[in-house]
Design a protein around this nucleic acid. Structure first.
Lengths: 199, 199
DNA sequence: AGGATTATAAGTCAGATGTATTATGTCAAC
DNA sequence: GTTGACATAATACATCTGACTTATAATCCT
């Protein structure tokens, strides 16, 4: 047979091609043919790695979450050994906004997936699980920051977590050129300042 | 000829049918045939009122913005003559979240439209104009509240406006059942409390 | 060496979609 | 009563979609 191929690697390459399609041509162009072309392979070849369009989307979405985590993790390493929770939150929020190509692609993927999730139980569960998990991480961070005295103990961890996550609402404002990326970052800084200043 | 028909009225009926399709079956089912069926008319009849799918979407989107404004306006009347700006903002934000059928429909329409806007210049401009206008209204409200001493004069109107609009980021959290509607409203109240408390 | 297995390519198919065309019915104006 | 503008319906059509099938070539394993 032809040289054995790393399926996982191939699937990731396809997923990245899919992101490029979403970012550059839009969700309506998210067809197996277009993705195959973008990935530089035939439709038949793509179907060899993904039995169905749904399976392809599902993988691409999980991979997007995963890569976002990786980007955050890489950013954290630059912050040194024991980074201030304020910086961790700032980095995390910044990576969830469409501020550079990769983040923009994964952000748009998420948006499209959420829309698709609203009427597909399986997709809904997958998307929900990812978000719940991410939210839990942020809440844990907030609780620890309160315990460590970085955040006023009068703050409710759950509410503060929700307010932080809501800041991803900047996404559509940025995408539609209503505000500039730096405006969003400035607002995030103001919010974080208030959250940590009160300690 | 057959009885004269109010075109505007017919178009609004079609737009509402379109919303129902978006809300109940999802964006992928947003086809002229399905919308026609939901509106209880033939495909040909629908085409008599909208020459193209794009024209139909464009109208439905404008109508959605318009109806959201109307809902806010109606809510404001219940607040009496000179409502507190805090209540005005709370009402406005609440109407933008998917908390009841109409709001959910228009919210999902917006989300779908934003996604489509990213790769269609005309749609982008239409969506952008609507958002910029809405943002201007909120900023004016914030500026007035500062001038009236309801909000601390140390606050930057632009940044505070952006933070308020970012709270629409609760939308996806609510849609995916990550948080409950009351959690979102509680968080909004906390944010507004802080904004107005400092005065 | 040769059979088994896999990667890749190409073609086919049924269904759906937006749009265009045509037909039919209805009613107002002259 | 005939004409013409309008509402509605039905159908046709080219295109695109995901899924499936088939064909070919490459290499692994025995």
């Amino acid at each position: 047979m032809p040289k054995q191929v790393d399926h996982r690697e191939r699937r990731e390459a396809i997923a990245r091609a899919l992101w490029r399609v979403v970012e550059q041509r839009g969700v309506t162009q998210l067809t197996m043919r277009v993705v195959a072309q973008e990935a530089g392979m035939s439709l038949g070849q793509l179907q060899h790695y993904f039995a169905s369009r749904t399976a392809m989307l599902s993988f691409a979405m999980d991979f997007a979450s995963e890569q976002t985590s990786v980007r955050v993790q890489q950013g954290l390493e630059k912050l040194g050994d024991r980074p201030h929770p304020r910086d961790v939150l700032r980095l995390t929020l910044a990576e969830m906004l469409p501020l550079h190509a990769d983040a923009r692609a994964t952000s748009r993927m998420s948006a499209a997936y959420v829309l698709e999730a609203l009427h597909d139980e399986a997709v809904h569960e997958q998307a929900r699980r990812g978000l719940v998990q991410g939210r839990a991480l942020v809440e844990q961070l907030v609780r620890q920051a309160i315990a460590d005295g970085h955040i006023d103990s009068g703050r409710d961890p759950a509410t503060e977590t929700n307010l932080l996550l809501a800041l991803t609402g900047f996404t559509s404002l940025i995408e539609l050129d209503v505000i500039e990326p730096q405006d969003a970052l400035a607002a995030i800084d103001v919010h974080l300042d208030r959250l940590f200043r009160s300690a």
